[in-house]
Design a protein around this nucleic acid. Sequence first.
DNA 1: TTGTACGCGTTATCAC
DNA 2: GTGATAACGCGTACAA
Lengths: 353, 353
Amino acid sequence: MAGQTARGGKDGGKGRWTGQAAGRVTLEMVAEAAGVSAASVSRILNGTAIVSADKRAAVDAAIARLGYVPNPVARGLAGGRTLSIGVVTQAIDSPFYGSALRGIEEALTPAGYSALFVSGQWSAAQEARCIDALRSRRVDGMIVLTGRLSDAALSTMAQELPVVVTGRSLRAPGLVALDYDNEEGARLATQHLLALGHRRIAFICGDLKHPDGKQRLRGYRKALAAARVPAVPALELAGDFTEASGLAAIERLTDSGTPFTAVFASNDQMAFGARLGLHRRGLRVPEDVSLVGFDDLATAVYSTPPLTTVHHPVHELGRLAAQAMLQLLAGAEPAPVLPPPHLILRESTRPPA
Amino acid sequence: MAGQTARGGKDGGKGRWTGQAAGRVTLEMVAEAAGVSAASVSRILNGTAIVSADKRAAVDAAIARLGYVPNPVARGLAGGRTLSIGVVTQAIDSPFYGSALRGIEEALTPAGYSALFVSGQWSAAQEARCIDALRSRRVDGMIVLTGRLSDAALSTMAQELPVVVTGRSLRAPGLVALDYDNEEGARLATQHLLALGHRRIAFICGDLKHPDGKQRLRGYRKALAAARVPAVPALELAGDFTEASGLAAIERLTDSGTPFTAVFASNDQMAFGARLGLHRRGLRVPEDVSLVGFDDLATAVYSTPPLTTVHHPVHELGRLAAQAMLQLLAGAEPAPVLPPPHLILRESTRPPA
DNA sequence: TTGTACGCGTTATCAC
DNA sequence: GTGATAACGCGTACAA
């Protein structure tokens, strides 16, 4: 670590960093070493134009020898592309979206792109601020995981940069929507309980401002209707996708005295809350009450008992969203489609006693 | 959306984005509008030098009127600072680190910085690649959450840019280590079980290549020794911090026939796995077996029964790490300290039958 | 205090 | 095909 005094590292004891890394190799240095112009090096790097084989070889050699690494910042300024994609999520530590973020990262990294994750915190205002920050950082595209933004706002944004949005069925130029059939998933879950012989199936709603929440409620009602089982309002409990709301819902239900033999929660987190609520009331799962969740979180396998739930391919959702973004960037018009919902049978359901 | 034809948006039907946003206001435009030089605008924005009040007012007005937003990319090229911090985590969807990531985001955003999260996937090679990518993107600093890198590698990195690392006690110039007293936490948990009257306490180890794993094992042994309870090797079970390993450990334990009345798992995830294992063997928690975890994940409150565990202030860890980074960047030498471990008593423990 | 001029590392537009 | 040259938007010595 000798040669870094010139421009890099800490500037002797003042306790401040210069911000310049030590001994960086620039494109220009490569050009000189290879005996060609900087423009040609750039062309080789980007495949912008055809260059003769011998020059290319010389440049490749120089790059390897000097250990040249392109500077994305300069690239961003000059070319207008930053090779970075903004990803708007609701909470970076969400057990649900986390998996999608990993999928996005997996697909973006090999392509040379990096992801800028920001959390909207379920607030439209916060989400707008995040998006502004992302755009000021000149991201090349934006992936929005079930945001709070209006369809109109997204379409407008798509006029300026490619947008991929999940959890919606929206059509607009420069925009790809990646939707999941929540209604069908909820129908499957409810139908499973009906098939087991349950007739009094409680349903814990998700946040009804959230499209997923509405659709899953519809699926529940649809399955009931198809089986000619009357929907009873007292069995439809309000919730907001959190464990706490699942617990509270069960407490309200048992307190009300409304009879029930099964519970279908709109997501796994509420199912976990409900599981605890049932435990507190001395109700066993599945002996006394059957329980079904939605999403198939990684932890659902390890709940006691392992939770029967509707599988939501979140990880794949992330991967597909990122791949669609890459294609959008390449000028294509992808139309990705998610695998259909299916039920994962585990140990939290059985026929009513 | 009229004026964007000049330089922005999609270039008419070709299906490619130019990468240039529409009608961006530059610093130079602000300068012209305010009747001052670009240099002065820059100075006002950065507080680099004193400018007269009237010019400042004119510039502020122009900025507001034109809706000027600085371009971080250009700023990065010119000033060498990108206002972005690299954050190396092991998995972006980790239930444990997720909380830390949020803490980091919360502290960085108000300061105008953004975080670049990357996942090392528990692989030293992958982690090195991530760090290279981050450095090539010219991050101003690096936060490493319990990485696989050697202390030496971190110290070397700290010569070039500020580094904050968690889960280590390391001293080096330009580097802040934020350690947590795992040993004391494990001691507290074990002592709690001992105080309840347990004598045959099984311990599920974490990954022993991981410092946390080693330290927690030490704390367990230390508490046993202090209570003059002999450590029995058959009660120390191998694990790797995953739910699956917790489950497997319990299966091995029960199969071995070794008597035990309590289980202390090195982290909550393994405790959840153990919980399921006990359930499968027909052992009730806490009636037949007491169970204690470590970390206090958000989900620990909603397991059945709610899990007694050692609280790990992960969220605060993230916040403190980010704040330390900010101070480091400002030329200070922070020495942040995490709150001491404490036990959260819930419902998974009681005296042995 | 303020303005001028240059540099940051690349890409893009020209001529050749 | 290839090489000068001009942006890209901003920070900052230096001079005034």
